[in-house]
Design a protein around this nucleic acid. Structure first.
Length: 271
DNA sequence: CCATATACCTGGCAGC
DNA sequence: TGCTGCCAGGTATATG
């Protein structure tokens, strides 16, 4: 579930409330993708300064160091003064003076990793190859254009790779390509500059609209308040194989690209 | 260096 | 009802 919009919506739903709190206890469940990388004692008593986002990572700034949180495929966070008893899929919990922050992640592709600072090896390993932030002013059209020109792969795969632009996952790659009228199988390097400009705008528009709609809830995503998102109702192509295109009425196609499903309209998305 | 395949893990669903 | 196989929002790592 968690692409950039879901991660940002999650951040917005608890950042203000947790900021300034102090960590009172740490509870670990089953192993996640990587080990925490520090003792729980190292976290106790530390103040939570704030919550930032980089790509699909949340960065919990502490007095000394930071926690990198990733929601993987099935993760979600909850934050409340008091949470229900922990279930079998709750694998990390910070009890703070402002409330409890809990990660629920059935598939456990997510992670919570401590880094002493942003230049530490572990932080560089996880964040170092990330591309431009699509919703920031730093999402430069010319850099995007040059980056695409240098790629031999298909545009959908290049978007998903995350080393040119971050945060675009399977749902929003499909949606942005539809909005830009670009077929997901086109070689990135073959896109004209006007189509690249269209795609650049489409990525921004689709992601920011999704943030406004609270993200997409396909199965069980919710923000840290427990609210579901609604963007999935706006989807033009994702998950709509065989249904009719909302623009031209033609059938939405589904294909496989790099072991993942892509959805597109053969008529509205040409070359 | 680049592009593609694999692995990680659980649960929901279609089909038999 | 219960079994099997396939599919799912991500991405580091291995392989070619």
């Amino acid at each position: 579930m968690p692409e950039l919009p879901e991660v940002e919506v999650t951040r917005l739903s608890f950042a203000d409330r947790i900021a300034g709190s102090r960590i009172l206890s740490v509870t670990l469940g089953k192993p996640l993708r990587w080990p925490l990388g520090c003792s729980t004692a190292e976290l106790l008593g530390q103040q939570v300064i704030g919550v930032r986002r980089r790509g699909k990572y949340l960065l919990l700034d502490l007095e000394r160091g930071l926690l990198l949180l990733h929601l993987g495929m099935s993760g979600s966070l909850g934050f409340a003064a008091s949470l229900p008893p922990a279930g079998p899929h709750d694998h990390f919990e910070l009890l703070t003076s402002h409330g409890s922050l809990r990660l629920n992640d059935p598939r456990r592709f997510g992670a919570v990793v401590f880094a002493p600072n942003e230049d530490s090896p572990i932080a560089c390993k996880l964040l170092g190859r990330l591309g431009m932030e699509p919703l920031s002013a730093g999402f430069d059209l010319l850099v995007f254009q040059r980056g695409l020109k240098a790629r031999r792969g298909q545009i959908k795969q290049v978007l998903l790779a995350g080393d040119l632009v971050v945060g675009v996952g399977n749902i929003y790659a499909c949606e942005a390509l539809f909005q830009a009228g670009i077929r997901p199988t086109v070689r990135a390097a073959r896109l004209s500059s006007s189509r690249v400009a269209k795609l650049h705008a489409a990525v921004r528009e689709v992601l920011s609209k999704a943030v406004q709609m609270g993200g997409s809830t396909l199965r069980d995503f919710s923000n840290a308040h427990g609210d579901a998102g609604h963007f999935q109702l706006e989807a033009m192509v994702y998950g709509r194989a065989g249904q009719s295109c909302k623009v031209c009425g033609g059938p939405i196609k589904s294909i496989r690209q790099g072991q993942r499903s892509s959805f597109f309209c053969h008529t509205c998305q040409r070359n």
